[in-house]
Write a protein that binds this DNA or RNA. Structure first.
Lengths: 344, 344
DNA sequence: CCTGCCTGAGAAAGCGTTTTCTCAGTTCGC
DNA sequence: GCGAACTGAGAAAACGCTTTCTCAGGCAGG
């Protein structure tokens, strides 16, 4: 049976004695160093195969100073957006032989920076996903986290590319779409107050209001999940708006569900729009009008940026801006003509 | 400025010289070893704080022989079920100070075992999620992966707890529910052939058929996502069944969407049921009747089992069986009386 | 035939920790 | 007051690997 070294596992030393060479030589063979005599190399490979030797990555990492692992910290692993980013990131990184370590901060922003630091130390680089921490804190810790890439957040710290979705433009597109359909009273069902992406939406709406003074836009407090939307029915109806911009698709779905329970028709009575275009959006009844965000691609891009940083490629650090694409489906329709105030 | 050792980062050696002690002493202080003179300990702590010293986890891992990290390999990170398991696992592990490394096999079963091995070597333990590999292969590699816990799969290999959802019982519950509603012609929209959980459902249905000879159950080929359900409309209608058991909620949603496009009413014309009770299920129109699987809890339990293994607690390795809970909602209703065979 | 270059492999020095081993310096008991 | 037990901290080994350093041996050139 395979002999074991002091510890339980087979190590480079075992292969070395079996092949009758030094561990240095085994290492050379395993790493494709061609300064080894072919015969000896073959002997080593045979020994390694027979022993089923697999180099210990921890020892390797220590010697090489790299782990072939990157970290990602997200505020909430339950959020489909972050799941999609994780997926894109993981897939792209895997293609280059990197693994990903996840850290979920559960929306407690005070933990974020510790979590990020810990994750970073175990990895070769870090992706910080829509961090909830303050700008000051972010700028402060950013240098210690390098190589670092930011998603949906920017910072003054140097050498930190950031990939951001242009939520501001997205809501303007949606609002414009609703206005074209004849809606003059809109309502925005906002997201979590600390969310930077919510802030961007609000700014976008301000711009929209400035450009369309004739349109009334009511702001409603909200959140980011189904229940938020479901519970917002009363507030939405009270606003008198006929076109609702929900913070995201989840909220929109919750809202549609709530409206349906009240016997209201979407889009007959009220038009509802989402944001993100999560996979489910196509399959709601009615199918949800939303702004599609190429979110998986975002994760993929995050890896590419991070990879450039890790490899110290001189590429100036650009970051990118992603434009949402308006996806018109069945949940938005012509504004109800005031006269046809059908009850039910 | 903080002096740096040969490498870029501050190490234990830097703290040692700053505090005027040996690195051994610094290590002792950092690890709460009380055989150090309080004055010296204070000096060390001050130096560490001033230098913002954080121990390098890789060096630590090598010395300690543990990484405080566990791995999980999933067949498809896009699948809500695996996302939920990951979430539960990650949360539970984090509470004990463990991080999780993810590996996505993208449904290519040939890669699974390599992926699992690689992940395992970097971690203290592994969770294998519904692996697609053959029983033989699983049994073969299981010992080399220990500590290992299996989800939705069992193996003959010893010391491998496995957590499985009783899908067989679940489908029987759903079928029973439909029969109670008066349905006598059912159809099962199956999942991926290689999926073990699909196999369990099939077995459950066999048992059901044996117990209810008067009920006709048609088997239809399928898959595990929306599109599968959406494309299955024709096959479903052709079967003449009035009660459809979809492989999971996603398939059910796709199917409902397709039926809706054909102008058919759910549950008026056809009852549709799902499986899993993903968060979206409550918010479809109509809300989806399904079998709720406590999936996040599954991830949590997986961690507890794995933890016991890592800590070598003698607990006999039980594994657990999770019973789905029938969740009756609006998508299932009384079977249409045969006379009212409305066309379209 | 001797010097010098070159090839190839072993010895050894890291990588950054923890931990055992060792040994000064104290304290205690007799 | 002297050896024994004890305390506390430095030296060194260990963890498993990579890589530089070193050096023996082979070969060509003068």
């Amino acid at each position: 049976m395979a002999r074991k070294s002091a510890s339980g596992r087979i190590g480079i030393a075992d292969v070395a004695v079996k092949a009758g060479v030094s561990h240095a030589t085994v290492s050379r063979v395993m790493n494709g160093n061609f300064t080894v005599d072919p015969d000896i190399a073959a002997r080593v490979r045979a020994a390694a195969a027979e022993l089923k030797y697999q180099p210990n990555p921890v020892g390797r990492s220590l010697a090489l100073g790299k782990t072939d692992t990157i970290g990602i910290v997200v505020p909430d692993l339950a959020n489909p957006t972050f799941q999609a980013i994780l997926r894109g990131l993981s897939r792209a990184a895997a293609q280059d032989g990197y693994r990903v370590l996840i850290a979920d901060s559960f929306e407690v922003s005070s933990e974020e920076s510790i979590l990020a630091g810990e994750a970073r130390r175990r990895c070769d680089g870090l992706v910080l996903c829509a961090p909830r921490m303050s700008d000051a804190e972010l700028t402060e810790i950013a240098p210690s986290l390098h190589p670092l890439v930011l998603i949906n957040r920017t910072t003054a710290a140097p050498d930190v590319p950031s990939l951001v979705v242009d939520y501001g433009q997205g809501v303007q597109d949606i609002a414009g779409h609703l206005v074209e359909l004849g809606h003059t009273r809109l309502a925005f069902l906002a997201g979590p107050p600390r969310s930077a992406s919510n802030g961007m939406r609000l700014k976008g709406l301000e711009a929209f209001k400035a450009a369309h003074p004739q349109v009334e836009v009511t702001m409603l407090e909200g959140g980011s999940d189904f229940d938020t939307g479901h519970e917002a029915v009363d507030a939405v109806l009270a606003s008198g708006a006929t076109g609702i911009l929900a913070f995201n698709d989840l909220v929109a779905m919750g809202l549609m569900s709530g409206l349906h329970e009240r016997g209201l028709d979407v889009p007959g009575d009220i038009s509802v729009t989402g944001f993100d275009d999560i996979p489910f959006a196509k399959y709601t009844t009615p199918a949800l009008t939303t702004a599609a965000v190429p979110i998986t691609e975002l994760g993929e891009q995050a890896w590419h940026q991070l990879r450039a940083l890790i490899r110290k490629e001189g590429n100036e650090v650009p970051g990118s801006r992603f434009q949402p694409r308006l996806e018109v489906r069945a949940s938005s329709g012509p504004a109800k003509a005031p006269r046809s105030a059908v009850h039910g």
